[in-house]
Write a protein that binds this DNA or RNA. Structure first.
Length: 564
DNA sequence: CTTAAGCAGTAGGCTCCGGG
DNA sequence: CCCGGAGCCTACTGCTTAAG
């Protein structure tokens, strides 16, 4: 404590003893202790030495970590222990029971897609967890990943695995699925990432077509894998097909009269149909276990579907499944997966509203603040038709078109929608447009810092009268063991729906940033900040370092280890 | 636009109270 | 007597603003 009588400088002895010095020589303390009163100590230089605000940033970080830990514990109904002020492990924070439960959960659910830990070794080391810092950190990371629904970010330094790598591993049989997953991602090398990030421009239709072919052949029709693995494999495969298709349209490689379905504007519908049919066969749990990575993939596929949806004619037969029904399915999935933690639903709804403004009640813009409002959303007109006759609000923002051009794209206007898309997406056109005005995109629709409360999406009224709040399995036709959708070969390219690629459409609205903005969205949509921007199950387009960018599977970098 | 002065916030050193 | 730590002091830093 400093007082008005404090001396400017304490003598060496008083300074060392931390007692009040009176400043005289010899001072009272030195006199009574019979010490020589000296002032030899060299005062330290005052003021900050390192970078400024180091302490305050540390404090902020510590408080944030503490808050996260408390939140996580509260979620599990566990009383939060006092936060350790040091970096040392807090005794009792990670109990044997928690370690055992996490281990069990990991090997039961996540090991098939993340075979990165050896169970016996892990269990052996877990006994000495307090003596083994590395294992402690690893187990803590697993706990964190499980509690926070985040994939492990451990970087693989292994070669391409094979079934016979370790005959003693009791989990060996799970490698089948993992190798399948590697095969799905194998075609995505540095070249693809460079093209994706636009650090390369030599993108040929033949290359993209070859990629689609490899993708469609990457998985066998019948997978000898667990349901969890199958859900991840099938979803990843369809999502990657969508990514390649997006690259195709970015490079103006699509054509309305191409023999290769993957090079047409209809392809997202095929993908959506296949994925919708596949996901209908998966249990809720088998999809949720993959966390937000799988949700993002569903979201990406649904976004591409939405983009082409505005161009499709109303289905003639209201009693068959169509693109809008697939979209409905994806919305329902986004609304119920992850226990209502559906940040992607409002993004998709906003995109639908933006691309197909006639479909969604304008009040939907307030959806995040008004969760119940989703129950009243009438997306379709009751006959499975979207509001095709209503021009997109921002259509006239496109550089190549005046406001009146819409009439040309309208069915009555007489311009084929494929023709129209080709015109809009051809390099000669897009080259004159800014990245912001590229077709097939969504404009920035919300702030990055936006957080969404739990948002119910009980469904919207449409022709198929999907009941609100329906059970997941019933909703997707699983309960009675059959899908309510058309049959298509899993993972393969399917025939186009009849009549979908005909002349129709109202032009394509929106703008698409060419570079993926560091989020799960392939549309450059700013996602809520709460959605982790790292460790998505796929790569990010935010990076400009395409050449050294690894293509990952659930956060595991495969590109440097022969998975090319 | 550049430069310098002023200002506010920050970090670290200091004294020394008071509990053990 | 030891020493943790409260409170004060001051050098330092980065931002803002005014002057040239």
């Amino acid at each position: 404590m400093s007082s008005s009588s404090s001396v400017k400088r304490a003598c060496d002895a008083c300074h060392r003893r931390k007692v009040k010095c009176y400043g005289i020589n010899p001072c009272r303390n030195c006199s009574s202790a019979q010490l020589s009163c000296t002032y030899h100590a060299i005062p330290q230089k005052k003021g900050p030495k390192g970078s400024r605000a180091k302490v305050i940033s540390e404090l902020r970080q510590n408080q944030q970590s503490s808050l996260s830990a408390k939140t996580a514990n509260r979620m599990n109904g566990v009383q939060s222990p006092p936060c350790s002020p040091t970096l040392a492990p807090t005794p009792g924070l990670l109990t044997t029971e928690i370690v055992k439960e996490c281990t069990e959960f990991f090997f039961a659910n996540m090991y098939p897609t993340m075979p990165i830990l050896h169970r016996e070794i892990l269990e052996q080391q877990a006994l000495y967890v307090d003596q083994n810092v590395d294992t402690y950190c690893l187990l803590t990371a697993i706990s964190y990943a499980l509690q926070r629904h985040r994939p492990l970010s451990l970087q693989a330094t292994i070669n391409l695995p094979s079934i016979n790598d370790d005959p003693t591993d009791p989990q060996n049989h799970h490698l089948h699925g993992f190798i399948h997953l590697v095969n799905v991602y194998r075609p995505f090398d540095d070249k693809f990432v460079a093209l994706w990030n636009k650090t390369r421009t030599d993108c040929s239709p033949a290359y993209l077509s070859s990629l689609q072919k490899q993708l469609s052949e990457a998985l066998p029709v019948y997978l000898n894998t667990t349901e969890n693995q199958t859900a991840d494999l099938r979803t990843s495969q369809q999502w990657l097909r969508t990514m390649v298709w997006q690259l195709s349209i970015q490079n103006g490689c699509l054509s309305s009269n191409c023999d290769d379905p993957s090079m047409t504007f209809q392809y997202p519908v095929d993908i959506a149909r296949d994925l919708a049919q596949m996901t209908s066969q998966f249990s809720h749990q088998s999809m949720e276990v993959h966390g937000v990575g799988l949700i993002e993939k569903l979201f990406d596929v649904a976004c591409s579907l939405t983009d082409v949806l505005s161009l499709l004619p109303a289905k003639s037969d209201p009693f068959t499944m169509g693109p809008r029904d697939y979209l409905h399915q994806f919305m329902t999935m986004l609304s119920i997966l992850r226990n209502g933690d559906h940040r992607f639903l409002p993004l998709l709804l906003n995109k639908v509203h933006d691309v197909l403004p006639g479909l969604v009640n304008p009040m939907l813009q307030n959806a995040p603040e008004n969760p119940q409002m989703c129950a009243d959303v009438d997306l379709f007109d009751g006959f499975g038709n979207t509001g095709i006759s209503i021009p997109p609000q921002n259509y006239n923002t496109m550089a190549t078109s005046g406001p009146n051009d819409y009439k040309m794209a309208h069915p009555n206007g007489g311009l084929a929608f494929d023709k129209r898309i080709e015109e809009l997406s051809s390099p000669s056109v897009t080259g004159s447009m800014s990245a912001e005005t590229t077709p097939f995109t969504s404009p920035p629709i919300m702030n990055t810092g936006m957080e969404y409360q739990a948002l119910d999406y009980p469904g919207f009224h449409d022709l198929n009268s999907h009941a609100h709040g329906m059970d997941f399995k019933r909703e997707f036709g699983v309960e009675n063991g059959e899908s309510s959708f058309g049959v298509s070969s899993p993972g393969g390219m399917s025939e186009m729906s009849s009549g979908v690629a005909s002349v129709n459409g109202n032009g394509i609205s929106g703008r698409r940033p060419p570079i993926r903005q560091g989020s799960g969205s392939s549309y450059g949509m700013p996602l809520p900040r709460s959605i982790p921007e790292f460790n998505h199950g796929h790569f990010s387009r935010a990076s400009t370092g395409g050449d050294d960018m690894g293509v990952g599977v659930n956060g595991v970098d495969l590109s440097h280890h022969g998975y090319r």
